[in-house]
Design a protein around this nucleic acid. Structure first.
Length: 215
DNA sequence: CCCCAGGCGTCCA
DNA sequence: TGGACGCATGGG
C-alpha cells in the first residue's frame, strides 16, 4: 500500500485559482436550468448535454411547470443527445412534478442543508454527486462535490487510498478547507478542469500536471 | 474497432 | 456493503 501524502489543500486551491482564474460554474442561467443540467450530465459529455439543453430551451422547457405539461415522448426527443434519454426524461419529469408539488424551489430552500440533501437523495435518479451539485450550485450551500475526476486526481496524487469512496473523499476536503461556498464552488470546478486535461483514465500521473509543483 | 464522458438503480453474494 | 451490469449518445 502506498503511503498517503499529506497536502495543504488551501495552498493547492489558491495556486490553482491564481493560475486558472474563476471557473464561473455552474454554466446555467438559473437554478432550474442548473438542476436539469445536473441530471443530464450524469456519466455524459457536457457537449452532449448542451445539445439537449438547447433543445429544451428552444421549446421553453427549462421550466418545471412546463416540463410537467409535456408528453414524455417529446421530452425524450429533446433529451436524446444527452444519452440514457429514456431514464433521464422520465426522471426529469418526475422530479419536476415533485418539486412543483412541494411548492417549488423557494419552499425547498427553507430546509436545512442536511434536510435538503436527504430530500434530493430520495428522488429517483439523484445520487450523492447530483444531490451535492444541486445543493452547492443551485442552493448555494457549503457542500463539497465529489466526482470521478476529483476521486481520480486525489488517488493519483495519493491524497486518498484507491479504495476510498465518495464520503471519505468528501470528509477529506471538508476537514482541510474553510466551509465557504465560493471556495467549494471554484475548487470543484478547477479539479474537473485538471482532471479533464491532465489526469486521463488510462495514463499514469501526468508529468505536465499543473498540480505537480504544488505537492 | 476501441475507449471515454461532471452517475444511478438494481440485483446478488 | 460492495461488485457487476444496464442504461445510450456523440467525440476522439
Amino acid at each position: 500500500m502506498t503511503k498517503i501524502r499529506d497536502c495543504n489543500l488551501m495552498t493547492v486551491y489558491e495556486s490553482l485559482f491564481s493560475a486558472f482564474g474563476p471557473q464561473l460554474w455552474w454554466p446555467a442561467t438559473g437554478p432550474e436550468e442548473m438542476i436539469i443540467g445536473a441530471l443530464l450530465t450524469q456519466n455524459t459529455n457536457w457537449k452532449n448535454v448542451e445539445k439537449a439543453l438547447s433543445n429544451l430551451r428552444r421549446n421553453n422547457l427549462l421550466s418545471f411547470p412546463y416540463i410537467i405539461k409535456t408528453p414524455l415522448s417529446q421530452l425524450e426527443k429533446m433529451i436524446k443527445p444527452a444519452g440514457y434519454f429514456r431514464q433521464k426524461s422520465q426522471r426529469l419529469k418526475a422530479l419536476a412534478e415533485t418539486i412543483v408539488a412541494t411548492g417549488g424551489l423557494d419552499s425547498l430552500d427553507l430546509l436545512t442543508t442536511i434536510e435538503l440533501r436527504e430530500w434530493f437523495l430520495r428522488q429517483s435518479g439523484i445520487g450523492p454527486e447530483t444531490a451535492d451539485s444541486i445543493l452547492l450550485y443551485a442552493f448555494k450551500r457549503p457542500v463539497f462535490v465529489i466526482d470521478a475526476y476529483t476521486l481520480r486526481v486525489c488517488k493519483r496524487h495519493n491524497w486518498l487510498n484507491d479504495k476510498d469512496d465518495y464520503r471519505k473523499a468528501q470528509k477529506f476536503f471538508i476537514r482541510k478547507l474553510p466551509l465557504k461556498v465560493n471556495i467549494f464552488n471554484e475548487f470543484h470546478a478547477l479539479l474537473v478542469q485538471i482532471g479533464k486535461n491532465f489526469c486521463r483514465t488510462k495514463k499514469p500521473l501526468c508529468q505536465e500536471c499543473p498540480l505537480e509543483p504544488f505537492l
